[in-house]
């Protein structure tokens, strides 16, 4: 089982600019499977978005002044970005760390664990940006939004992806096997998806649950994306961005300390 980090595991990261080659390594592997990977990233959220959007949307009057499918599409951008980053930083990172010993090989070269963990976080964020953008392209193609403001969603997807990648790397650091990740989905990802307004406005929830929702990162991701899809500037964009940053930075620090404890002993 996971060990608690020692005092020295909490030291700030020391990064070599060569970390970028770890990111490039992952990119090169992805490029070989890019088409399959993109289709895989798209299929699942697309089915939810179109199935629920058209099916459920037909039964619903407008939600918060927009068509249900538009409401849902905005949530799907954030949800899909979250999922993509989470999968990459759990399953893929775990194979590289534990099964293929890729991390070990890299740490025998002039790169440290700090470089590897940062590169993994940024890689997962990059890959999830593509997932979020792919949904955005569907939104444009279906004519669900025409606003140029939606372009802001692309850099925001990177931040959203980074946040969830860093959170997933915390789980990666303490996980004995792939099976363990199921707990993360059951206990964190799925409740967050239902609580944070992907499928319905959080105002439908009891007020206690609404407070929980407002503390979760997916809520802030959606609070940024949904107004942009509707062609409006979010009400408090800086607040949401800062909260996502804080989640990302804190998770990264915890993930790094736990991974140092796991691998550098």
């Amino acid at each position: 089982m996971a060990l608690l980090p020692r005092a020295k595991d909490w030291r700030p990261p020391r990064i070599s600019p060569r970390f970028v080659h770890v990111w490039r390594r992952n990119f090169l592997v992805w490029r070989k499977l890019a088409i399959a990977s993109l289709l895989g990233n798209l299929a699942d959220p697309m089915m939810y978005m179109l199935g629920l959007g058209l099916g459920l949307g037909a039964l619903l009057p407008e939600v918060n002044g927009t068509r249900y499918i538009v409401f849902l599409a905005a949530g799907t951008v954030a949800y899909s970005t979250m999922n993509s980053a989470t999968f990459e930083a759990l399953y893929s990172a775990f194979s590289r760390m534990q099964i293929q010993k890729t991390w070990e090989a890299i740490m025998n070269a002039p790169l440290d664990l700090d470089d590897v963990v940062l590169a993994e976080a940024l890689w997962a964020a990059s890959k999830s940006t593509l997932s979020g953008t792919a949904i955005l392209v569907i939104i444009w193609a279906l004519g669900l939004s025409h606003s140029p403001l939606t372009l802001w969603i692309i850099p925001l997807a990177f931040l959203i992806g980074l946040t969830f990648a860093c959170m997933a790397l915390v789980m990666n650091a303490v996980s004995p096997s792939y099976d363990f990740f199921l707990y993360y989905f059951t206990l964190i990802v799925t409740p967050m998806t239902l609580l944070c307004g992907v499928f319905f406005p959080i105002e439908q929830l009891p007020s206690a649950l609404q407070s929980v929702s407002r503390a979760l990162p997916l809520y802030h991701a959606i609070a940024l994306v949904r107004p942009l899809v509707a062609g409006r500037v979010p009400a408090t964009p800086v607040l949401h961005v800062v909260i996502l940053f804080v989640y990302a930075a804190a998770s990264f620090h915890i993930a790094l300390a736990l991974t140092r404890r796991r691998l550098l002993n």
């Binding site: 060569r18 490039r24 390594r25 090169l28 010993k101 002039p110």
Partner: peptide, 21 residues
């Protein structure tokens, strides 16, 4: 062995060499 299973023999050497800058 910690070779990269996703890469060819040559790619393994190139990707590893990059880690050295």
């Amino acid at each position: 062995d910690s070779l990269d299973p996703d890469f060819t023999v040559t790619e393994n050497l190139i990707v590893y060499g990059r880690y050295f800058g």
